[in-house]
Each structure stands twice: as C-alpha cells, then as structure tokens.
Simulated scan of single mutants.
Amino acid sequence: MDFNLLAIIVAAFSALLVGFIWYHPKVFGTAWMQAADMTEEKMQGANMGKIFGLALLFSFFLAFALQFLTIHQSGAVSMVGGDVENALPSFHAFMEDYGTAFRTFKHGVLHGVIAGIFIAMPILGINALFERRSGKYILIHTGYWIVTLALMGGIVCAWQ
C-alpha cells in the first residue's frame, strides 16, 4: 500500500474548510462561543497564523492515521512486514484480487463516522467534563469531528 500524499493534504485542508463552515456564526459559531465562554475580545488577541498552521499540521496527522482505519489493505501489507517486493506469490495474488476492495468514498465515510463517535467523542467528552463544559459544548465539537473525520476518511480511502 502506497501512501497518497496528495489525498492526505486534501483531507487535511478539508478539516479547515469544514471548520470555517461549522463554526461560522450562522451555523454553530455563536452557540460555540457561548458554550466555550469565548468572546470577540478573546478571539481578537489570538495568533491566527499559529492557530491555523498547527490546526493544519494536526489535521495532516489525522488524515495520515485515517488511512489505517479506512484502507484495510494496510493490514495485509503489515502481515508481510511491509516488504511487498519480497512477499510470497500468494500475497500478490491476494492483492490482485482484493487490492481495491472497499476503497470507496462511502466506505471511508463510514469509518470516519465510527472514529468520530468512538474516538473523538469520548476524548472531547472526557476533557469537557473535567473542564466543566456543557453538553452543548460536547455536541458542537463532536458534531464537527464526526463530519470532518467522515469527509477526511472518504477522501483518503477513495483516492487511489
């Protein structure tokens, strides 16, 4: 399995795009500001270059990791120690038959949603509980991550 750097980059940027929409004041931005106790003054004092640069870097990490959750062939490659050139003929026959199985946008979306519900939501929920945040805060962020991971998963899985 080869990593598709372009797919990872596009998926990483998609997280920012969804964020621009999701946290827009006409969508969930105003509700998020209230739930997060965020004010316009606090937002004005932020280093946005640093915030967006690190957000993109972290999104890149997520897109890279999502390949292993969405592309099942990576498990087959790991079974031969990653050395596909020296793998037995049976491995090559298997990959010839199943090398593109479940490599669809829809399949990636499914696994992205699963990751959002079973990975992102518990992490956000635990942090929010200890920070004494509301259920509304958890739902706004969890919704963002479910949608974002679904889109990212779809991109990295389908892009061959």
Results as ranks from 00 to 15, higher is better:
W145D: 04
F68L: 13
M121I: 08
K50H: 10
G112N: 00
V18C: 11
Y98R: 14
A11E: 00
F58K: 08
I117F: 12
A7Y: 03
G81R: 15
Y23H: 09
M33L: 08
A46C: 07
Q34N: 14
I8R: 00
R133F: 09
T30D: 14
G153N: 08
G81N: 15
M152S: 02
T39F: 05
W159E: 01
G99L: 04
F20A: 10
I126C: 06
L6Q: 08
G49S: 11
K50V: 13
F52V: 11
G125H: 05
N4K: 03
L5D: 00
Y144I: 02
L17A: 13
A101G: 02
T148E: 04
T30E: 15
V77W: 15
F52H: 05
V113P: 00
L124A: 01
E85I: 13
L69G: 04
K50Y: 12
L56K: 02
Q67D: 00
G108H: 01
G112Q: 05
F60D: 03
H111W: 12
W32T: 11
F94N: 06
L149V: 00
F105T: 03
V84P: 04
D2F: 09
R103L: 12
S78K: 14
A150I: 04
G81H: 14
F91T: 06
M43F: 09
T142D: 02
K26E: 09
L6H: 03
V156A: 02
R133W: 12
A150P: 05
N127H: 13
G116C: 10
F28C: 02
N127T: 13
Y144G: 06
I155M: 02
L129T: 14
T70H: 06
T142Q: 02
D83P: 09
G135A: 07
M33T: 07
K50L: 15
G125D: 03
L149E: 04
D97H: 14
F130L: 10
R103A: 10
A55Y: 12
M48L: 10
G135I: 06
N47D: 11
I138D: 04
W32R: 11
D97K: 14
T70I: 13
W145K: 02
L124S: 01
L5Y: 07
L129N: 12
F28P: 00
A115K: 05
T30L: 15
G81P: 15
S78I: 15
Q160R: 14
M48V: 08
